[in-house]
Design a protein around this nucleic acid. Structure first.
Lengths: 228, 228
DNA sequence: TGTACATCAGTGAACGCGCGTTCACTGATGTAC
DNA sequence: TGTACATCAGTGAACGCGCGTTCACTGATGTAC
């Protein structure tokens, strides 16, 4: 059986990616292939048996990151009773923050300054859509249960309405009016705004207990979205 | 008079910083001193007549960036009638976004992934506080005019209340309850969340007309803060 | 079960490169008398 | 107004470095018969 070679190969691949993640944490987004090789005890050219180039290694880290984050978000949200809409949203928000705090360098890789000239791989679409589904499901459940009240807004530009209706192609948005999708998008942006502010050091003068602040703000956000 | 030398010196300093900003835009946050020198038509060592090291040049760009942003924010906000609270907040939000879109690389430098090991210079405190003052003034005016209704929230943790009361040391927060400061902080985070999402490419599948979306979301934010 | 051949992980040397920073220098501008 | 000296912007060579990637190689693992 060729299993030995295959198993070693996948273990080695994982080890390289982990070393790369660790490197990312200490020296930021310009990943050095040679440093990674050193860390796993290999000669630098050996990495090329596993990744055809430095960019491909980076791509793998990015895809892994989105997937890990989506996993955490889904797991946290599914553990909350379906009828507890605010609890479900809070679970999602805290899952993102917890993952970000546990993996700050990866968070920065996904949601910080994009590497110039580097285009996000198509494979990120799937995990990103998974998070979108979780969020939209909360909105739909709230709407169809009558807990989320939304009055049609005729000041919403038609173009924007169409954008929102087409967003996340392939994801079921049925029964969720554009007004609600827009609210969800704002809430989602706010969650990442809060987390980025905290992790990137923009709250240093303002807040000392970040846990308390985040929890309070998520409650406020819940109120604002209308999930109570 | 030594004015000639001094004038040339400050002109050259400005030219170097501008070249550095341009470089930033094409190759991201790892600024190359040699590339900057090439762009201004100097030999690389000549830069050291103006900046003692690469980090000092970066620092100058960061301080300049915050200052330019605070200038724009103040100018935009002060052009709106004092009683138009929602208009004042919208002016602030749009000023930030306009500046960010006009100077995306600088925005990323200030609000994107922090350079690991690099500590933000103390001089950024002043321009950051200036923006804080603008925001807090809006909240105070709204509160004292009775337009911003805020009921005391006894679920707000004491620790958080103290944090908010101490925030932006030296800035006048008199007459603005912690509940309102917290709302302001959330709104401020949301503005940057929206802008970062747009500039860093996280809305690509979701929204095509970013102007419309931002304008709509800022109106929603205004409603949420209570500025109508 | 044993042998011949194919696959492929890892080595080590080499490539060409751009980087930040230093240093002794030249020559123009500014200052003191 | 003219001369002697000080200041300082910019040059060019050199330093030591780490980088991504290539290539011919060795030796172990896997496959076919």
């Amino acid at each position: 059986m060729s299993n030995l070679r295959e198993r070693l190969r996948s273990e080695m691949t994982a080890e390289i990616k982990q070393a790369a993640r660790d490197r990312l944490a200490v020296e930021g987004p310009d990943l050095s292939l040679r440093a990674v090789a050193r860390d796993v005890g290999m000669v630098s050219s050996a990495i090329y048996r596993y990744f055809p180039s430095r960019d491909d290694l980076l791509t793998a880290l990015i895809v892994d990151g989105y997937t890990a984050l989506a996993d955490r978000v889904e797991a946290a949200e599914s553990a909350v009773p379906r009828t507890d809409l605010a609890g479900r949203f809070a679970a999602v928000a805290h899952a993102v923050r917890d993952w970000a705090k546990a993996h700050p360098a990866e968070y920065a890789l996904l949601y910080g300054t994009p590497v110039p000239g580097y285009v996000a791989p198509q494979e990120t679409v799937v995990p990103v859509a998974r998070m979108g589904v979780v969020l939209i499901d909360i909105l739909r459940d709230g709407f169809s249960a009558g807990e989320l009240v939304v009055s049609p807004d005729d000041r919403m530009p038609q173009r924007l309405r169409e954008d929102l209706a087409d967003m996340l192609a392939g994801v079921d948005r049925s029964g969720v009016p554009a007004e609600l999708l827009s609210r969800g998008l704002l809430a989602w942006s706010s969650v990442f705004g809060l987390i980025s502010f905290e992790l990137f050091g923009h709250l240093v003068g303002a807040v000392s207990d970040h846990d308390l602040n985040f929890e309070y703000q998520i409650r406020a956000l819940n109120r604002e979205v209308g999930l109570v």
